[in-house]
């Protein structure tokens, strides 16, 4: 039995990156602190994973100030959404494969 892994996304193999993408697909935008609170990860871990998602073109970053405090907003791109959906489909296929 051959396994179709063309949909599987190496970038999203990382758990934190996959979680970030699930939040950004479900919401129009999300800010750094709220992501941190939901995911329960360190600043450094979250920042480096956000950076790599940005480099892949999966998300865009928007920096601004609210009450003189930095407020960074993240949005998914169309490419990011597509990759997330493909990756989910790949996971689904993997499960089906193991049942079958």
């Amino acid at each position: 039995m051959s396994l179709d892994l063309s949909l599987y996304d190496k970038v999203l193999e990382n758990r934190v990156r996959l979680q970030i993408m699930s939040i950004l697909v479900a919401n129009e935008h999300y800010d750094f602190n709220s992501l941190k609170e939901l995911l329960d990860v360190t600043d450094g871990n979250l920042a480096s994973n956000l950076k790599s998602l940005e480099k892949e073109g999966y998300i865009t970053v928007e920096k601004s100030f609210v009450d003189r405090k930095p407020n960074t907003k993240y949005r998914r791109t169309e490419k990011g959404k597509k990759s997330f959906e493909n990756h989910l489909a790949a996971l689904e296929n993997l499960i089906k494969q193991q049942y079958g």
């Binding site: 699930s22 939040i23 697909v25 479900a26 919401n27 999300y30 996971l91």
Partner: peptide
């Protein structure tokens, strides 16, 4: 597990 986590995050975040 992973898929369950994704679903709960999508719900919890929105």
């Amino acid at each position: 597990n992973q898929i369950g986590q994704i679903r709960s995050l999508m719900e919890k975040s929105s």
